[in-house]
Nucleic acid binder design. Sequence first.
RNA 1: GCCCCCUUAGCUCAGUGGUAGAGCACUUCCAUGGUAAGGAAGGGGUCCGCGGUUCAAAUCCGCGAGGGGGCUCCA
Length: 645
Amino acid sequence: MADSIDLVFPDDSVHSFPPGVTGLEVAESIGSRLAKAAVVVKVDGRQYDLNRPIESGGKFEVVTAESDEGRFVIRHSAAHVLAQAVLDAFPGAQFAIGPPITDGFYYDFDIGRPFTPEDIEMLDSEMDRIIAEDQPFEREVIEREQGLEMFADQRFKTEIITDGEASQGVGDGIITVYRNHDFVDLCRGPHVRSTGFLKAVKLLRSAGAYWRGDEHRPQLQRIYGTAWENPKELAAYLERLEEAERRDHRKLGQALDLFSFPAELGAGLAIWHPKGALVRKLIEDYSRDTHLAHDYDIVATPHVAKANLWETSGHLDFYADGMYPPMELDNGQDYYAKPMNCPFHILVYQSSARSYRELPMRLYELGTVYRYERSGVLHGLMRIRGFTQDDSHIFCTEEQLADELQNLLDFTLMVLRDFGFTEFEADLSTRPEKAIGDPELWDRATDALRASLEVAGLPYEVAEGEGAFYGPKIDVHLRDAIGRRWQLSTIQVDFAQPINFELEYNSSGNQRERPVMIHRALMGSIERFVGILVEHYVGAFPGWLAPIEAAVLPVADRHNDYARDVAARLGEAGLRAEVDDHDDTLGEKVRRAVTGKTPAVLVVGDDDVAGGTVGLRLRDDDGEQRGVGLDDAVARLVELCAPPR
RNA sequence: GCCCCCUUAGCUCAGUGGUAGAGCACUUCCAUGGUAAGGAAGGGGUCCGCGGUUCAAAUCCGCGAGGGGGCUCCA
């Protein structure tokens, strides 16, 4: 063995240490504060426990608690402590896996019954006790046989060892385990030095979860928790959870009287109240107008079709689980509610012989589809059984595909920006193993998608092999006001449907050629899009989307007539104004308008009647302005509520 | 679909074997008010539904409906 090993620090300086030096010792040589902040260290990208001897040199890095990597280690260690607490408290408990996840960790158990809220509370204090004891985590490498013996009464651990999962610390004939006090778990590591390093841990809830996520396997009880590097970060995280709750579109939709989900209707079905339906109308008008302005043709199609159509399209083969059951009509014909619009748009394409001169043909529809979502996955407007897509199918030649995709992505981003979103990310899904169509065509389509992302300057990740069997696609995700990521737009190339339906066009050389098809939805589902907008804006829609743009409040009822005149003037200027002539005090009316998130509040009293003015209070400004001339106020509100185009 | 939790007035929620409650909203009256809740009176309930246990069920049990948290993050 060498006398010394060389570690290259992040500043590229090289330092020699004796073999077997620990990460902690190295960190201390750099500085005591760094050593204190260290969670683990990395040598050539491999994580080491702080007290694990380093036997060979390489690029050295200290991972601190403030980094995502450091937090993962903390959460992972917290998961161990949770398992320790459960095994202590419930003799005979079986434990499965317990990884760190975004913002926290979980661990899956089988204790023969579900956990109660009291159990969770008890386990939380039990974890605090283990943390207070500051038990050291010790890494051990043991023989596979020894591991099987050690976990002989743990069926999930035995399965993990038998399956030889490297990610679980199970290597080639050897196994890594971590031990603290009398608790031991299979684990690749690394961990914090001791339980005392866990400064901010909190259990959140329990839930059922299938072993290996497979509903045909036993259902375990999962406990979720969160862990952070200090109590301040934990408190900030809990605050973020509360903020998300405040923005919940289901609650705001109720409070702002936008929509509801009456039990009489059935699960996953919404009704839209006047204000909510007005917001939808504004969004839908925008959608139709922008599509017309971008050379799309609007089509309209029915909600049901014969089984035959869904056989040709392949939906009954590949999508039957997502479809409502058929209704039997004339002569035993089965009709299905449509889960997608594509076959209908294809029928429009097929309604006439097509020439290359007509391509690209862009058929657009706000098409309402019905999908049978499993009851357990329904969620407000975000996951629903009947919804309307801003759907389009574009038929073009292979040569036109690249340009078409480029224009499409630009169009998509324009639309999303018009609704106030600014941060986007994309996934590019490429050819899976089982795929139809010429691989060369796939490559060209995928390259075209990639090029469109590059040109648009959109950050993206490649999801290798994640494309559908019928073509590559781009999914566009956006970040909302509190940083949550929502998948919204999809641009999907389809080589299969043109074949299924034997689509053709006549080329310039009078040859019959097969077009390529692109499916795309920008807002995706209008329902879900409204839900996202509600959460993004906390219900305070931008002026042009607000159901009521201006509330006109008479100070006393002798001002009602003037208030109606003011509202009429606003209406003439194209603004949605409403007079609040309730028998309430002005304070009450102001409160109603403000809590209703109305962008502009106009107060009119004696002075205003006399002077032809209004008192103006804007949602996004503090305080109010008295005696604003009516013309001036109208002009300002028109500007405030101007639509994006 | 599966596991756990929830469902009481239009809304938010209290009540947990013994006569159904509060605040807000609604109706009427008084007050005519200048920027986030003026006052009074009143109406309003198949306590989600159906069965069961009990002298007695909103309350306990079973089934069903609807809602919520999960079931994708690999020790």
